[in-house]
Design a protein around this nucleic acid. Structure first.
Lengths: 154, 154
DNA sequence: CCGGATCCGTTTCGATACTG
DNA sequence: CAGTATCGAAACGGATCCGG
């Protein structure tokens, strides 16, 4: 299967000077991948069925594939929790470090999307107190607490 | 349910609460799209053939499609320059505002990509003097001067 | 029931050849 | 030089089936 496939998500074409953008695209450049990361980071979804019923309509095979890929990339880990049914997925430090990128994307979309669904308060915090918001979300992701993340829910 | 196409790049599936990530993915979430934006922002490529010979190996139809899509999204404009052969593409203010996202991606990749091709000096500036670097690149993009952007070249 | 794996019809993407 | 046309190759999405 080394047939020089040119899937943007798995292996980018050409392979020129291997710029940083390539690495990022290979790792999380896929649309579904980014949505999963968003769910893990801002929403409270963390299980397989959480993602399935997130309303995006992702297929089971696609979801399984993306979760496996994210795991291989070291962005998420699967924890077979004993207390709750099903396995939980969690962002690794490497995954949590994607936060600044997501915040920039949110800021850009809020500026140019005529009908953003992002809460005004959250967007304002992204602009005005980015550092504090970042620390708050990181703290929430490490521990169990979900505080700032709730603001993103629709 | 909806037999409407669900291409991640053009129109995202489900269409749930239309979160900011969706808008971003629809606009520049495609791999090739992001590479074009990168070329316009950091490299000195600005024409159709510049992109073609960028070494990425993009096909002509894909390039034409992405350029048209970026134009429709208001991220780039096509200028039929009289002085030089061929048409030049340029980032609009909306496109230039993607810069923080790209810088965050570069920073993340530099941190986790074992063999990044990004010059050390540039990455250091991304971390240490982000604001100044941003202003410098924006200035270069507006005018004709290319100063900081040269640092990204391999 | 949850977490997938497999099969298959459809759609989209991408490489090449070709054209204004 | 700047794109279109064609066509094969993947990826996607849906349904179904399977192991725990």
């Amino acid at each position: 299967m080394k047939s020089k496939s040119t899937s943007p998500a798995e292996a980018l074409p050409g392979r020129p000077s291997h710029c940083p953008i390539h690495f990022a695209l290979e790792t999380f450049g896929d649309a579904w991948t980014l949505l999963i990361v968003r769910d893990l980071m801002f929403k409270e979804r963390s299980t397989y069925t959480d993602f399935l019923r997130a309303g995006e309509g992702i297929a089971t095979n696609i979801l399984a594939d993306r979760l496996a890929r994210l795991g291989r990339a070291g962005i998420i880990t699967r924890e077979r929790a004993g207390d709750r049914p099903g396995s939980h997925y969690r962002l690794t430090p490497k995954g949590i470090d994607l936060l600044p990128i997501l915040l920039e994307i949110i800021a850009w979309s809020a500026k140019y999307d005529p009908d953003t669904a992002a809460p005004r308060a959250f967007v304002r915090r992204v602009h005005r107190e980015r550092a504090a918001l970042g620390r708050e979300i990181r703290r929430a992701l490490r521990g169990r607490k979900q505080s700032a993340t709730k603001e993103m829910n629709s």
